[in-house]
Design a protein around this nucleic acid. Structure first.
Lengths: 190, 190, 190, 190
DNA sequence: CATGAATGAGGATTCATTCAT
DNA sequence: CATGAATGAATCCTCATTCAT
């Protein structure tokens, strides 16, 4: 008797996650180029070939991790869904962001390592990622508008840069004083 | 007539620079892993084998670029050499930094791409780099002390993070409003 | 209610044909090596594993196609079954042959592609095929004997070669003037 | 002291030939798909990687063999270079052709195996080969014109088909009566 | 010192075949 | 009987590095 469609679906969903998680961990720890498909398969407890039944290539695996990771991470932002951030929400937003940074360290390591490194993701994909982040940035611009900042766009760029900088320094320094820095960030931005 | 020792020395120094410059450019543009020794040799106009008479490996080549680049870039900092930055000097320092960022884009691209990417430089080397940057950071801490900031170390970390964030965003976005952002940075730090 | 034995048998025979037809089409169009079991299963609308309940391997599938195809094609030859071809019958035979060529293009493509290609069918099988064709050739030799040709065997080899040459050229050239060439063949052979 | 350019050139020309010859032999004997790069390298006495310094891929290696083989084989045709074949020359031409068939058995085996097999050479290349053979066919058409044949084009197609058929049958049957068949071919065509 | 031919370990990917369900 | 997930050997190709000249 063959497995039912539902059983197969479950297997696939679950194994897909195994692969993604293993790959994320290894990519983040060892780097994309330095991690081999064999590494990932071993870590995920599957045969090398099976990866190719879930992803067409190592590259697509990376892309899937990046995109789906982004979706997982952002799905809880802007609870009102009105696209407008109240100062209260901005605070929550930043707290949330810093929480996620802490919890999804591997994702963010991979994210920065890969976006700042030429020759890993192509331009098309880079633009796709930027497009995905666009609404977030727009929301923040509106927030600064509402706050009455001189040049809201510039302020957003500043905020974005600041947060990126905090992130990358935190990711590679286990003694980074994240909480205290967060207070400085909040003071500067909210 | 054989070349004199001095001539030979000059040739070596010059050819070494050719290799370093070619490698820097290619590493920055195509990424470290994606750039081959053949690429570099071709770009530098030398034979592949010759590279190995200047550097023992691709890895050592990268390390040399990183270290010597750092030295080139910082040799003009802190003109008084007293280790203390006056506010005036801090301004100059930041201006200088942003100038260098603009002029040595390739270096910084490589620097960030490589530091944030695991599996390229080993931990020993990472620590060496940090050690090299240490005096700079100390100077900045002292500056904030002199300025009477609450927590000078924290402020330095904040400054460092902010500047890193500005840098990486500038490096990958040709429309980045660097000058305007610089003003915001100065306002916040000086 | 379980299926009766006869129903099962019918299903098996029919599904077997589905597989053979799909494989024939794909082998002929894409080549034996380039066609995967997955391709065939998909085209036949069955699961990959099922193929192995009808054929022990990809190779055996190919052999079955070749042999059964031959039988299908030749079962109508020599209607008198006396092994002697009258000139009238020779004409019919050639006409028949050319008709079959037109109708079973896929089979012939596969046949030639596979016979002329080393490393696909083993020598044992090659000889089996030749053995199968033997009676046909003998019949033709007898025909030339009866016709009073000098060297009937040689004439058969000539005929065989000529027809093979016509076939392969026709199979790969959609503008091949098959009918006109057939007349030349008849003029030369009958 | 590095090798001189000329030395290198010699090495490359010679080694290229080694590779081509090994590949031709193996492709012809074992088939294109069944022959691995490792096989070829071993047979040619070189490391696997070296092949890729001479040919960009297995496919390009095959193409080179096919094209250069054709050139080697045809370079002596039509000695007058006037594009017109006298009956005397037609005789020589056919004799020549049959000689070549005998001497370059591997080439012809490969040629037929590969042209009649889908999925090995792409359509672009197939057309290139046909284009290369075009002048030959034109010459033969002119010959039949001069001879006063009814439909010279058709006669050329017939000749071409006949010769192809003779070739493939000879190539796979060591008892093929090539010389006697040649006489029949000459009788029919000249 | 300089060259580039040569090496071969290593890595991504494919696919016939097996087997648990 | 039927499914398709899983396996892993096999294959093409790359590239840092070596070395004869």
């Amino acid at each position: 008797m063959p497995r039912t469609k539902i059983q197969n679906e479950q297997i696939r969903v679950q194994k897909r996650m195994q692969i993604i998680n293993s790959a994320l961990e290894l990519f983040a720890q060892k780097g994309y180029h330095t991690t081999t498909i064999a590494d990932i398969a071993k870590h995920a407890g599957i045969a090398k070939g099976l990866m190719y039944s879930y992803f067409t290539s190592k590259e697509e695996l990376l892309h899937s991790i990046l995109i789906e990771g982004y979706e997982l991470i952002t799905e809880k932002f802007d609870p009102n869904h009105d696209g407008i951030l109240e100062p209260q929400e901005m605070l929550l937003f930043i707290n949330d962001l810093f929480d996620k940074l802490n919890n999804d360290r591997d994702y963010w390591r991979l994210y920065f390592s890969v976006t700042l490194q030429p020759g890993v993701i192509d331009d098309y994909f880079r633009k796709e990622m930027i497009k995905k982040y666009k609404p977030l940035f727009d929301m923040i611009i509106k927030y600064f508008e509402a706050k009455g900042v001189d040049d809201p766009y510039l302020e957003m760029v500043f905020a974005h840069s600041l947060i990126d900088g905090v992130f990358i320094n935190f990711l590679y320094d286990k003694d980074y004083p994240l909480d205290k820095i967060k207070q400085l960030v909040i003071k500067r931005l909210v």
